[in-house]
Design a protein around this nucleic acid. Structure first.
Lengths: 186, 186
DNA sequence: AACATTTTTTGATGTATATCAAAATCAACT
DNA sequence: AGTTGATTTTGATATACATCAAAAAATGTT
C-alpha cells in the first residue's frame, strides 16, 4: 500500500475518495546515495515517506553545513515551513544511502486540503506531533551536555552510528568531530 | 471581542455557530503577579491569550527552573503536548505581572474539534506556526553563541528586558546570570 | 531616611568544548 | 598487496562559559 496513505491513517480517518485522491498525487522516486531530494529554494515537497534508505536534513551557517535531523525508514517527514507559508525551506535534504521515497508536492497537498477538508484533522495531528518532537529537541539543546545529547541519540536512533560518519553526527550534536571522538573514547 | 476568537480568525474562517460555541467555552481569569496559571500535572488548558500581562513558561531540570519562553500581550499560546496527547504538560506557566487571560480547556477544545471539524484547519495552521517558531528556537540553540542569542532576544522582545529580571533571561538563554551580566557589560 | 531584601556586578578559578596540526586507521580501487 | 583518499583519533593550546564567593547597586518597607 502507498506508504503516505499508510502513515496518514495513523493520525485519523481517511475516506476512500480522499485516499484515492492522495494515491493519484503521490510520486515514487528512486534516489542514489549523495543525491539531493530538496535543494533549498527549489522543489516544494510537503510530506514524504522513506520506503527504504536514509536521509539527513541540513542548512548552511557561515558556509558550513549543520545537520538538523536524520530520517530512517517508515516515518513520515516534512518541512513544515513550505506547507505553512508556501515558500521554500532553508533546509536541504540529502540521501545518505540509495533510497526509495514517496512524496506529495506542496501544491498537491494544499489542493487536497481544499478538496477534502477532513484531511485537516490529520494535518493538525501531524503538525502537533512535530511540535512535540521539536520541543524535546530544543530542551535537549538547551539543557543537556554534548555527552548527554550523544547518549540520547544512540538510544533513539541506534542504527545511525553504523550508517553515517562521525562528522555528520557531531554536526547534529552541535560539537566538532574531534570532541565527539573524545566523548566516544569512554 | 473575545480575544481567542480574534486570534483564531487570523488563521482561517470561523462560522458564526462555531464562534458562538467558542465564546461559550472561553473563560476569563484575572491573575496576580507570581500566580501560576498551569502547575505541571494539574490543569489542562489548551490555547489561551493574554489580554494584559506577562508570563513565562518553565520546567524543572536537576531541581532548577529553566525558562522556555516569555509571553506578552496579543499573542496566542498553548502547550501543544496536552492538546496532542490529552496528558499534562511538563511545563509550568507563571504570571510575571498582574494579568488578564482568556483560555479554553483541553476538553472543551477537543469537543469543539468534534462539533465543528472546520476548526481543524485553524488548529493545523496554529500548530504549523508553532513548528516554525520551534525550529527557529532549535537552530538558535544549535548554532548561536550566548551573545548572539541575547541579541536576538532583545531584537524580538525588546520590552522584556525592563519587565523581567536578569536571572530569568539567563535561564532562557541557557547560561548563568553571571555570564549574562558580563555579556551585557559591552 | 534607615533598614532589609533582592538583583546585579565583579573577581578568581575550573571545566567543557573549539581550534589547529598531525598521525593513525579505515575503505576503495587497481 | 600497494596506493590513494576519506575518516577517525590524538596532542597542544585557546576560548566560552560555569562555579563559588563576595561586593555593589537597586528596590521595597516601615
Amino acid at each position: 500500500m502507498n506508504p503516505i496513505i499508510q502513515q496518514f491513517k495513523r493520525y485519523g480517518f481517511l475516506s476512500s475518495e480522499a485516499e484515492k485522491a492522495i494515491e493519484d498525487r503521490t510520486k515514487c522516486l528512486f534516489k542514489k546515495k549523495h543525491d539531493h531530494f530538496l535543494k533549498s529554494g527549489q522543489v516544494l515537497s510537503s510530506y514524504f515517506v522513506l520506503e527504504k534508505g536514509l536521509i539527513r536534513a541540513y542548512f548552511y551557517r557561515d558556509n558550513k553545513e549543520v545537520n538538523t535531523w536524520f530520517g530512517e525508514e517508515n516515518q513520515i517527514f516534512g518541512s513544515i515551513l513550505p506547507i505553512y507559508t508556501n515558500r521554500p525551506s532553508f533546509e536541504n535534504i540529502q540521501f545518505l544511502e540509495d533510497s526509495e521515497v514517496y512524496a506529495i508536492s506542496v501544491e498537491d497537498l494544499n489542493e487536497l486540503y481544499r478538496l477534502y477538508p477532513e484531511l485537516n484533522l490529520i494535518g493538525r495531528k501531524i503538525a502537533e506531533e512535530v511540535c512535540v518532537i521539536l520541543e524535546e529537541r530544543s530542551i535537549s539543546l538547551h539543557t543537556e551536555s554534548a555527552t548527554e545529547r550523544y547518549q540520547s541519540l544512540i538510544r533513539l536512533q541506534p542504527r545511525l552510528l553504523s550508517r553515517v560518519n562521525l562528522g555528520h553526527i557531531a554536526s547534529y550534536l552541535g560539537i566538532t568531530q574531534e570532541t565527539l571522538s573524545r566523548i566516544r573514547r569512554y
